[in-house]
Write a protein that binds this DNA or RNA. Sequence first.
DNA 1: CGTCACCTTGATTCCGCTCAAGTGTGGTGG
DNA 2: CCACCACACTTGAGCGGAATCAAGGTGACG
Lengths: 244, 244
Amino acid sequence: MQTLHETSALAPSACSRHAGQCSTCALRQYCVPQGLSNTDTDKLQSVIVNARAIRRGETLFRVGDTFDALYAIRSGSIKTVVTSANGRDQVMGLHLGGDALGLEGFDDGTHACRAVALEDSSVCVIPLSTFERACRETIAIHRRLLQLLSREVVRKSTQTMILGTLRADERVAALLLDISSRLTCRGYAGNEFNLRFTRDDMGSFLGITLETVSRTLSRFQAKGLLQADGKLIHILDFDGLRAV
Amino acid sequence: MQTLHETSALAPSACSRHAGQCSTCALRQYCVPQGLSNTDTDKLQSVIVNARAIRRGETLFRVGDTFDALYAIRSGSIKTVVTSANGRDQVMGLHLGGDALGLEGFDDGTHACRAVALEDSSVCVIPLSTFERACRETIAIHRRLLQLLSREVVRKSTQTMILGTLRADERVAALLLDISSRLTCRGYAGNEFNLRFTRDDMGSFLGITLETVSRTLSRFQAKGLLQADGKLIHILDFDGLRAV
DNA sequence: CGTCACCTTGATTCCGCTCAAGTGTGGTGG
DNA sequence: CCACCACACTTGAGCGGAATCAAGGTGACG
């Protein structure tokens, strides 16, 4: 509903369900655009030096860390957080398997947010130097990077829209529908999922309090729009949710 | 105060005050990073095919327009706007002389927002095809583009922070301080400026109503923080404004 | 001179915040 | 194994900040 675009360049792929079997699958999923040849893909794979596992609650990078690598989520989910001057945390984004991470670092060579794993996760680490070489050698990879950065801008615009114009219940609905559509793109069920955000995370992300999130979910449940058992969300009435 | 970074890669330049004398000055200002040689700069200039004038209220590009050129503001100021599904407008950004525009188009090849001139303005038009060639030939230009895109992401994060965590008066203060610091970067006076936003624009941008903006400015004036005569803003007490 | 766009200020309403109490639930250690 | 605790979630009561509705003022412009 609030999505500016149906941005699903991610080809649905069984890969994401068997991450252990394919170390480069996130990149394959994410960075391979239409029209990228097999040899190009091979080049891309060659730049991935290693994969890294992070456990729930652990931090992948912090504000001010030198930006020396890009990340692609292989499995799990990661939130990005910024702490404001007055000390309040703001959840900036929810990143699922296949998403890129850390692109804001190009600005000044340091990361501008903190990335924290919401569950035990695994990420591909792509050193910046090798990636830059790949960009220069392969124009399709270069274009893909621009696309990813641009998509990040559009995503953030959607977020601004949500925070700027919607009421609390509309925000919650927008978040659930967004997550649902992103999971669908990845080949997962879009109507039933395990939300890794706490109520507090959701509230911060949506610019409302955790109590309001909880109340809103209860109201949605009472209206028969969804079934919420803690973090397990089962959407029953998509149209109803879209209608606020 | 709410700025995540002191993002002032724009070298203060007399150029911006004499825009008419230097057709490529916006690009010179904006796209020339440290370490870009003169020959590289010449290459950059060669890709600018023309400059375009747009009058107050006119539109530079619309949502859905094919993304075939980048823009750099030579003089004037431009707002970007998105209309949501329910028909409400959300002002997404305020772009001043020297700023790049239209970078969100890389995502899917079309513009994701509408760009409207807030006053009679002039922009450099850089055709995408020639710019892509320049990126390939000159790595510094390529890096600069990534930096601009990344900066856009960081800027939007700041906006999300403002909309997500601040109260109305804090938002207004944050906007004024942001504009002030950006003008200072460009070599203009930061304490007195003509705000091209209407109260409605400000409200939309900050996620509050125009009445609240007006009341807040009146209150700030009563407290001696600033002098507001319509669009003309004179900041008297920066520290007071920073302290909310 | 009337129209229109923009701004200011007041009165009232209401949505969401704050404070508070109570309910699971998973993890830890005695 | 169970007592305990920390943490996340739910729900209620009351308050307050900002929205809404409304009226009036100002300046630009045909």
